[in-house]
């Protein structure tokens, strides 16, 4: 599959798809990042798109079955440069997911690579499917 998208120098070529809520124009925006999820019998996996975010700028927490991903990306305009569009200086990413009672919060793990945060949320033993032997 191949997709084409034209962008042009000069600024208005930007953000038609992203779920973005401007909070302070020019200085910062809060973005709900895109994510992909799937599960099997062992765990849920969630991949969150966080382009430009360094590993130490990500915080993942869980409380009352709500998983929260918070991250920020500083995007300053270098001195002597001129931005050719209206770009936020800081992007804050926030994603809240209701993971339900089936996830074991003690065993959640996370890794980050190439601007994508991957979370693994193992299910509690009691919620895993069991095979019943027929005697």
């Amino acid at each position: 599959m191949s997709e084409k998208q034209d962008s042009c120098c000069g600024g208005s070529c930007h953000t038609s798809e992203v779920a973005e809520t401007a909070t302070e124009k020019h200085s910062g925006v809060t973005i709900r990042p895109h994510y992909t999820s799937r599960y099997d019998d062992e765990a849920w996996e969630v991949a969150v798109t966080l382009p430009g975010v360094a590993r130490d700028q990500v915080n993942v927490s869980i409380e009352n079955e709500i998983l929260e991903v918070e991250a920020s990306r500083s995007n300053p305009v270098p001195e002597g440069w001129q931005a050719l569009g209206d770009y936020p200086v800081e992007r804050r990413y926030q994603l809240r997911l209701d993971v339900g009672p089936e996830v074991d919060p003690e065993r959640i793990s996370a890794s980050q690579e190439d601007g994508v945060l991957t979370l693994r949320l193992p299910l509690k033993e009691a919620t895993k499917p069991r095979t019943i032997a027929v005697s």
């Binding site: 070529c13 895109h34 992909t36 798109t49 430009g52 995007n75 440069w81 931005a83 569009g85 601007g115």
Partner: peptide
């Protein structure tokens, strides 16, 4: 969902800079 690919353009006297989001 379709990942977002945003582009930002900057300029100084010597050059242009484009920052393109290509996560993954």
């Amino acid at each position: 969902s379709a990942p977002y690919s945003g582009v930002e353009w900057y300029e100084n006297e010597e050059s242009y800079v484009a920052r393109v989001e290509l996560p993954g």
